[in-house]
């Protein structure tokens, strides 16, 4: 057997802007625009295809590329509106002395997850997490687990704002062992569960995702057993305070499904925005706009309440007068 690559000196396939590559099997041409990012399993480029911009992932190791393509193909069969990027093509790029397998998928434009929340305000964390839980629920329903859930693998797409995921490298069939993970988001790392692919594994990561919003630099485990340490961190941040119970339940695997966690998140967000209606005047144009909208809504509800109370009072007095009048008539 050929030793393909020891990890320590893995050869990368470096492509340059304007470089044209043509697949060995399907002969589709692609023109590289720029690098979008790189991860453990390869480099992703923005490229121009015959039918528009695409994302192209290329690597040295055919095993991981093939595995990811398998996952993507699976979803292109069952896809409703986008669980992840759509899959377009898989092929090999031949150079003089090597073969680089690559695949081509939808290019999703959007903002990075953490900066988006940082720039637009804390209320977005709850909203995006609720959206994410909905997507996760659908994924779990068809027997898959996301696995490597972290902000780097998420993107907030524009109009309407919607959280989408980018990387399917960690996606694992229900019941198997998680293919790829990142320690901070991994319940095994914190000593709080196994690495078996099940909905609870992803929900743990969702709790950690919220913690990551408050601690962008993340942190490592210390001597104290997992849950005490983590909940201590949660209590130190105001951003996380309203969600303390949800985060804890996520850690303890208390939710039957992503939907149950979503419902609780929703309840908290709804209560929370009522409590805070008076202290909403922060800087930032986007925030001001949303706040103003929220404020206006709160004012209207208050006014409405007022009007309704008035109507009741009038009716009550009216009834009282009517009874008096009837009594007066009977007295006659």
């Amino acid at each position: 057997m050929k030793m393909r690559d020891s990890i320590s000196k893995k050869q990368e396939c470096k492509l340059f802007p304007n470089q044209r590559i043509i697949g060995r099997w399907h002969r589709h041409p692609y023109r590289i625009v720029r690098e979008l990012g790189y991860g453990a399993t390869g480099t992703v480029y923005l490229a121009e295809s015959e039918s528009g911009p695409v994302a192209l992932k290329i690597a040295r190791d055919s095993m991981s590329i093939t595995s990811e393509v398998n996952v993507m193909r699976h979803f292109s069969k069952v896809q409703g509106p986008s669980l992840g990027p759509c899959f377009y093509d898989v092929d090999d790029y031949l150079t003089k002395d090597a073969v680089f397998p690559f695949y081509v998928m939808e290019y999703i434009q959007g903002e990075s997850f953490l900066p988006f929340i940082r720039d637009r305000g804390a209320e977005w964390m709850g909203v995006l997490v609720v959206q994410l839980l909905n997507e996760l629920y659908r994924l779990h329903q068809i027997g898959w687990v996301f696995g490597d859930l972290k902000p780097e693998n998420l993107l907030v797409a524009d109009s309407p704002y919607r959280v989408r995921w980018l990387d399917v490298g960690g996606m694992t069939r229900h019941g198997r062992s998680i293919k790829e993970y990142t320690e901070f988001f991994d319940r095994g790392y914190w000593g709080l569960g196994s690495r078996k692919a099940e909905p609870g594994y992803d929900l743990f990561s969702v709790s950690m995702l919220m913690i990551n919003c408050a601690y962008p630099a993340r942190f490592e485990k210390n001597g104290t057993p997992g849950i005490g340490h983590l909940m201590g961190k949660v209590r130190q941040k105001q951003l996380l305070a309203p969600y303390e119970a949800v985060i804890l339940n996520g850690f303890q695997g208390k939710y039957q499904s992503a939907l149950a966690m979503r419902t609780e998140m929703l309840n908290i967000i709804q209560d929370n925005s009522f409590n805070r209606k008076n202290k909403m005047n922060r800087a930032g144009s986007a925030k001001v706009a949303t706040n103003r909208r929220a404020y206006r809504k709160n004012v209207t509800t208050a006014k409405e309440k007022h009007r309704w109370t008035g109507v009741y009072e009038t009716m009550l007095i009216g009834t009282f007068l009517l009874i008096l009048y009837i009594l007066y008539l009977f007295g006659q």
Partner: peptide, 17 residues
């Protein structure tokens, strides 16, 4: 495996996994 077309490769990879 690398000499197979990507579609067949995918099926084999399922077996490997």
């Amino acid at each position: 495996m690398e000499d197979l077309e990507p579609e067949k490769r995918g099926q084999l990879m399922e077996v490997v996994d």
